[in-house]
Simulated assay, not measured.
Amino acid sequence: MSSSRNFRWAVAGVLAALAVAAAAQGTNRFPGIGRDATPKEVKAWDIDVRPDFKGLPEGSGSVRQGMQVWEAKCASCHGVFGEANEVFSPLVGGTTADDIKTGHAARLKDPGFPGRTTLMKTATLSTLWDYINRAMPWNAPKTLSTEEVYAVTAYLLNLGEIVPEDFTLSDKNMAQVQARLPNRNGMSSAHALWPGKEFQAGAKPDVQAKACMSNCAPAPQVRSALPDHASNNHGNLAQQNRPVGAQHGIETDGGASRKAQPAPAATQVPTALLEKNACIACHGMEQKIVGPAFKDIAGKFGGQTDYLVGKIKSGSTGVWGSIPMPPQPQLSDDDARIIANWLAGNKKP
C-alpha cells in the first residue's frame, strides 16, 4: 500500500513538472518560428463593424454616387432597383412607412406575403454596411472603397424609402439612420449571446447545456431537391459558388462539368482564368445562368477579339437582355485578351 501511494505521488510530481515546463514554453510561443503580425496586417483583417458602430471607418457617400456604383457593380445580380433576378433574392420591398415608425417589419408575420427581403429582416445597419464592405461585389469581394460602401448602402436605403434622394450617409449619421431601419426592433438581445454587457446587462443564456440522452428520436433527414428534369435548368449549381465559405452547390449536371468540356472555339478553355475571375458564376459553357452561355457568345461574336476585350473590361448591357454585365477592373488586359481569343475562336492567344 505504501509503495503504491509513493508511486502515485511520484507520477503526480512528474505531471506537475511537465505542466510547469509546458506553461513556460507557452510564454515563449514557438521560438524561432513565425513573427507577430504588424499593425498594418492586423488592421487589414480587423474590419468588422459592431452594432454600436465601433470599427466603422470615417467616410461618406451620397445616394447619387451610390446609384452609379450600383449600376456598374451591383445591378447585374441585384437588379437596378434591388428587385434582383432569377438567381438572387430581392433586397428591397415588403416594408412600409409604418414599419419605419415602429421598427417592426409587419409583413414578416404575414403568411400571405411570399417574400422575405433583406430590408425586411435586417435589424442593424452595421450588418448591411459590414457585409457589403467585406463580401461585395460577388466577383471581386473587398474591392469597393470606403466611400463606395457608404454610397451603395445609402442607395440601398433610398430604394427602401428610408433616406431621401439627396441624402449623404456617413460615419457621423449612421446612428440616426439606424433609428429609421424598418426592422430595428425585430431582434432580441436578451439571450446573452450579444457581445458585451453594454448591450444587455444581466442577461442569462436561454439554454442550460443540459444534454438529454433518453427517448432520443431518430435524426431527421431533410433535403430539398428539384426533379431531375429541372435540376440543371440554370446550369450546374456546383459551379455557381465562390470558392470560399461552407456552402457548396451540388452537382446537377450528372458530373458532366468534371469531364472535358468542348470549347466554344478552336482554342483551349482558359479554365483557371474563368474560375479565378468568377466568370462561371454568371455564364455556363452551354447554358445561360445569369448571363449568356459561352457557346452563344462564341457563336455571335466569332473572330471579334477586340470587341470582346472591350466588353469584358468595361461591361455590357442590352445585348443579351436587361441584366447588365458589370465591368471587370480586376482583370488585366492580357487575361482579358486570352478569354476573348478563346471566345472568338482565334488559334493564337
Rank of each mutant, 00 (worst) to 15 (best):
P39F: 09
N233C: 05
K210G: 07
G291C: 01
R223I: 01
I289D: 02
S231G: 01
T305I: 10
P327N: 10
A19T: 13
G13I: 12
L119P: 02
T38C: 02
Q176N: 13
Y131V: 08
G112I: 01
L193W: 11
N139H: 13
H283V: 10
W320D: 03
L237M: 13
N215L: 05
G345E: 00
R337C: 03
G315K: 09
G32M: 02
K295A: 08
Q304H: 10
K210M: 12
D296R: 10
S316K: 02
M136K: 15
V177R: 11
V244W: 13
F113G: 01
H78Y: 10
K172M: 11
S231A: 14
E86G: 10
P114V: 07
C279I: 09
Q268H: 11
G291M: 01
L273G: 04
H78G: 08
V42S: 10
D228P: 03
G112V: 01
S188F: 12
C77W: 06
A140M: 09
G284P: 04
G255K: 07
K276Q: 15
R242N: 05
A44G: 09
V14M: 15
L156P: 04
K295H: 04
M1F: 14
G318F: 00
P292W: 02
S188T: 12
A16T: 10
D334S: 03
M285D: 12
L331E: 01
K259V: 03
G79S: 10
A12L: 15
G13W: 15
A10F: 13
D166F: 07
